[in-house]
Write a protein that binds this DNA or RNA. Structure first.
Lengths: 339, 339
DNA sequence: TTTAATTAAAAAATCGATTTAGCAATATAA
DNA sequence: TTATATTGCTAAATCGATTTTTTAATTAAA
């Protein structure tokens, strides 16, 4: 690492004044501390000339603030999270924060390690997509009034801010959309994990089916498998349950893998099988036939989360009443759900 | 931020010894500094009990090492970079490094700011996808022997390590593939930017065309436009140059936007238009017809880059001879290029 | 027996900032 | 004229580590 040329001390000795004075001036406390204007000007000019920048570690050490946020997502290479990361980034830099990211792969142990890492580092705020059962590891943060916001899912027993979409209603609407379009044997495909967003979606689906006197048909794909295995599993599901006439995919990657499975089985969408999937992407939009999607408002999610977090940081009051912020999805009807 | 419960000083006073001794023991210098084994054990036991973790800012301040890497990509929401970020992340954490990321949007000024940010922060290493003309801003880093690696593209006048694929050859092969499959009026679609990887791809394409006595047909899409505008621009190109019988898309997002444009114009692939695109993704694989892709070895790119960077960091010798590391792409023939 | 070397640990300096407490010098009030 | 405020600035403490320099107590060598 390149050594810093100028420290506050160097400036002070160069100008034959004390570093206290320099520090006050640099921190905009000149008025308050009654530093004379000529001296202020002189210091600022000099600082500008030598291109001084404060050592952020010394600052952090002294102030306890790091200007770093910790972003913990399930997988940064998942387009949904990648876009969130991108949007959060913009606003964070605008507000003077840097971002350290990590991907949990929905692994509790990994998540715990990352939490510890963030904590050791002393991040000023946490944006977290929690794995199931992470409550007890996050609780200490909540108890110590850390600035924290959960993303995409929540943990019921924790009093925190969280941002997510109205998953149950969205799934309900998606299911209703299929029913209205004439499908009856509609299956909901989810993953074998207790992530709250997935259980909510399942609940919404089941409610819609029940409300229309239809039998819910839930199928689970194991979580930890790789893509190829997931496709195989989906093919198996379709083979063993030929009565299914439509599918509601509970997530992005399930929809993608599902399309691949359907294609490999030479089934026709929407003739053989109606399809609606959570999340939207290039594939769903451009595919022939195009795929009906329940699109999450990614920008809005990101902005809500980061703005809320920065609010938390700036209001060091404890009057923050924690609550969930629910955003709405948009059902984008496309060819795959038109019988 | 929660205050750290135990500092090295607390441990020292708790055990009635000096913090020097504690520090030596914690840093594995007990032998070297002749600390007695009983004391070593006692300290380690105590440290374990109270769950002490060092303040990383104090450490960084003192040692000048930050254990943070700066990752600067064009756009973290671009699947190509998102996957790279994911792969780099794994290895970085394994080696004890954290990652701060940022997206340049191929904007030189933004890039400069991010470089400064990384520098101020004192990152231990840089992984950078440079915008054109960023040489003079990166040069100081190179001169000061910073640990640095360029990704996806390089800057000719700089002596640095860089990792990229053999773009010219890949484009040559992609073009040859189309020619061999009977296409003649093959257009190369690129963006209006001097990114080295794009100019290399163009060069390879032109060479292939010339070698087969065909006239190169290069079309540029303006860079800064949003997706919808790009699609419109691509439609305009196809409309004004109806003689084109195949397209080689120079990048991921051009291919995606291109497919959308082609679809909107109701052109048939591959009958009306053969298609090959750089990079691979779900859409290209699953689309009907599937799209022939020039796939970059993303894992290999990421691993090479991060491993090389960590090597740089660990070998504080200046014997590092900088050089380019070129990896090979894989042409994945699919339906879109079979006439 | 005195000197030198070794062992074991501690004191103090340092990294680069922020912040509290305080000190002269001047101005104002009593 | 003396007491009190105000002005303008600085010394020193502090954050939590690492590292150089010292010290004190033994042990070995002369």
């Amino acid at each position: 690492m390149k050594k810093q040329k100028f420290s506050i001390k160097d400036i002070a000795t160069s100008l034959n004044i004390s570093k206290t004075t320099v520090s006050f001036i640099l921190n905009g406390k000149a008025k308050e501390k009654r530093i004379s204007q000529p001296l202020v000007d002189k210091v600022l000019k000099f600082v500008e000339e030598v291109g001084y920048t404060p050592n952020q570690f010394a600052q952090s050490l002294r102030t306890g603030k790091t200007k770093i946020l910790g972003l913990m997502v399930e997988d940064i290479s998942n387009p949904f999270f990648a876009q969130i990361a991108r949007n959060i980034e913009d606003r964070a830099y605008e507000a003077g924060y840097k971002i350290i990211y990590c991907s949990t792969e929905n692994d509790k142990e990994k998540s715990k390690e990352f939490l510890q890492m963030f904590q050791r580092l002393g991040v000023d705020g946490y944006i977290i997509t929690p794995t199931p059962e992470l409550e007890e590891d996050i609780r200490p943060l909540v108890d110590s009034k850390a600035n924290l916001i959960l993303l995409d899912r929540n943990l019921n027993s924790l009093e925190t801010d969280y941002v997510m979409v109205n998953n149950a209603e969205s799934a309900y609407e998606g299911t209703k959309h299929l029913i209205r379009n004439g499908f009856r044997k509609i299956s909901f495909i989810t993953i074998s994990s207790n992530q709250t967003q997935m259980t909510e979606r399942k609940r919404g689906y089941e409610e819609a089916m029940n409300d229309h006197a239809l039998q819910p048909l839930v199928h689970e794909v194991s979580f930890k498998k790789n893509y190829t295995d997931s496709v195989a599993e989906l093919k198996a599901i379709l083979n063993t349950a030929p009565e299914i006439d439509a599918i509601l995919f509970g997530a992005n990657y399930l929809g993608v893998a599902g399309l691949e499975a359907i294609s490999e089985l030479n089934m026709k969408i929407p003739e053989d099988l109606g399809v609606v999937s959570f999340d939207d992407n290039d594939l769903f939009r451009i595919n022939k036939p195009s795929i009906t999607a329940i699109a999450q408002p990614i920008e809005q999610i990101s902005e809500t989360a980061i703005n809320r977090l920065i609010d938390q940081i700036n209001s060091d009051q404890q009057d923050k009443n924690k609550n969930g912020l629910f955003l709405s999805t948009t059902l984008i009807p496309r060819e795959s759900s038109q019988k």
